[in-house]
Amino acid sequence: MCSTLHFVPRRSEERGHADHGWLKTYHTFSFAMYQDPKHQQYGPLRVMNEDRVSPLTGFGTHPHREFEIFSYIVSGELEHKDSMSNVEILTRGDIQLTSAGTGISHSEKNSNKHGVPVHFLQIWSIPSESRLKPAYYTRHFTDEMKKDKWARVVASVDDEGVNREREGEGTPAPVHSGLTMYATILSSGKTLEKELNRRKAYVHVIQTSSDENAQGAKVKLSDGAGGELVLGEGDGAYVAVNSSSAKLLVENISGSEGPTAEILLFDMDA
């Protein structure tokens, strides 16, 4: 039986990394001072930074244009302010998406006064059309909505079930890119299946362990036809989809009573 999916690992320790004291960050793709021609983008996915920001610090006001920018909050509080008069404090389970279009400026800070860092992923995708009108969206997904199931947290703006309301719970944020982003919190011993409808996919296992150097959860990817790959926390995988009927199997293999695994899956155009 021929493999319907081809996996290429993107190991956590091979990502770009910077420790600025107030910011500890890992870059899946080339970003800032980290540049690697082998990891520039994948499909429309251009940036995926896993950031930890110390209390009362953050990113000052800076401009963006022509990117779809979304933040996935893992823990802590992220204060967002922008030139569209949006001011919001985002917490665990929140997804915030800014369609930068013709241009916006924003700041992102950890305003927590009790010594709690914020851990979030900032993700950029390339829009399918240029010079869009800037827009701002937030969505919230409880842990229960993601427990041992796929939650569709971001989806192409014209996909079924996607609306352009500014806020919402349990419905995907609209993105002007050919991608769908799913999230799950997968219990040890559990397996999820996902049919992949586009040419490429990317999987990221979030580093949720309290100790950044801890081994944490282990996840096995497979296609049911011989293709397999094991990932740890902070690891990712490029996935080439070789069949129109390809299905991805994701299993938490952390062992009896092992930790849950928080996983992001991107189903994308080539």
Rank of each mutant, 00 (worst) to 15 (best):
M268D: 02
P44V: 14
G170P: 06
A225Y: 15
S107P: 14
G115I: 07
P172E: 03
V205T: 11
D211L: 07
I206M: 11
Y34K: 07
E66F: 03
Y137R: 00
L265A: 08
V239P: 00
S222V: 09
S210A: 13
N197S: 12
V239N: 02
I104S: 01
E68V: 03
Y72Q: 00
A270N: 15
D36E: 13
R131K: 14
H114I: 06
N112Q: 08
M181T: 08
G103S: 10
R10L: 10
E160P: 09
N213S: 13
R164N: 15
E14P: 08
T184V: 06
D19A: 08
L5W: 07
R198D: 09
A155V: 00
S210W: 15
A32K: 10
S3M: 11
A151S: 14
H20E: 04
V241L: 08
L229Y: 09
P44A: 02
S30K: 06
R139H: 01
F31S: 03
S30H: 02
L192P: 00
P172G: 05
E50R: 04
H176C: 08
L186A: 06
M268Q: 04
L5D: 06
I185V: 15
R46E: 04
G60W: 11
N163T: 13
N163W: 10
E169D: 11
F141I: 10
Q215S: 12
V8H: 15
Y182C: 09
P259N: 14
Q40P: 00
I263K: 06
G258R: 13
S245L: 13
P174E: 01
T142W: 06
I185A: 08
V154I: 15
N112V: 07
S256P: 14
H62T: 05
Y26N: 11
R152N: 13
H204A: 04
T180E: 02
I123E: 00
G232N: 06
N242E: 14
M1Q: 12
L23I: 09
S3P: 08
A214T: 10
T57W: 05
H39Y: 15
S3T: 12
I253H: 09
L90D: 01
L221D: 05
L264T: 07
H64Y: 01
W124K: 00
I73V: 12
R46Y: 05
D158C: 11
R166P: 04
N252C: 04
K38F: 12
Q207P: 09
A100K: 00
L78F: 05
F29C: 03
H17D: 04
D267N: 09
T208G: 02
H62I: 09
A173E: 01
L192W: 03
V116A: 10
